[in-house]
């Protein structure tokens, strides 16, 4: 595809960059071919419409902010995860400690089968429904979030179907005794220190506020 001189001149007019010489040349071309004016009108209309379409599509950009709380590069980003890793480790330790002290309900039935969990023969769906129902009764499960995040989707063998990978989100309430966070002593060694529940709550709602 080639563009001729008329196309170039029309585009300059559309873009507002046409000089007086460009206009004179365009008028000269149009005097021989009135279709030039029609082409100019069409080009202006098309540019205005496309600009509106692009502006509409790009409006989403105004809602995307740079997550500057991560500013400082990969090191700081990693540090954030180290903080969370510390809390996760502390939570795991607290749960393990609670279990060792007999503070958490045992899940082992006398017969060796897991009590209150999946009896043999249940489908995973039924087991999950049972978990939700029991959890709600016990106050351990508060809700399942109404929307499910779909992480990936691809065509299935069945042409009418789609295979999806989803994430269901359940809100649970747990009671732990003796929550610890991971701190560092003056020698740079990791130490467990009792966690302040208020600080723990603050770190949940504002992750960067977690204690290192």
């Amino acid at each position: 595809m080639t563009v001729d001189r008329t196309d170039i001149l029309i585009n300059r007019v559309v873009d507002g960059s046409a000089s007086a010489e460009d206009w004179a040349e365009l008028e000269s071309l149009a005097s021989a071919d009135p279709g030039v004016w029609r082409g100019l009108g069409e080009a202006q209309r098309q540019h205005a419409a496309l600009s509106a379409g692009v502006a509409d599509a790009l409006a989403v950009a105004d809602g995307v902010e740079a997550p500057v709380e991560y500013a400082g590069g990969a090191d700081r980003y990693s540090a954030r995860w180290r903080v969370w890793g510390g809390w996760a480790a502390a939570a795991a330790l607290a749960l393990a400690w609670g279990a060792s002290r007999g503070l958490l309900p045992s899940q082992q039935a006398p017969g060796g089968q897991t009590a209150g969990l999946t009896p043999a023969g249940w489908s995973s769906e039924r087991a999950f429904d049972e978990y939700m129902a029991r959890g709600l009764e016990e106050g351990r499960v508060l809700a399942e979030l109404p929307t499910v995040m779909v992480d990936a989707a691809r065509p299935a063998d069945d042409p009418d179907a789609t295979d999806i990978t989803i994430m269901r989100r359940v809100i649970e309430r747990r009671r732990v005794r003796g929550a610890y966070s991971v701190g560092v002593d003056e020698l740079g060694q990791l130490r467990l220190v009792p966690a302040d529940p208020i600080a723990l709550d603050a770190s949940s709602s504002a992750p960067q506020g977690g204690r290192p």
Partner: peptide, 23 residues
Amino acid sequence: RTRLRLVGAATGGEGALDRHADG
């Protein structure tokens, strides 16, 4: 990668895929 939303999944109803369009 696509972001999709399942409508009604939490109620156990039939899930309907709702693909978010750019606009």
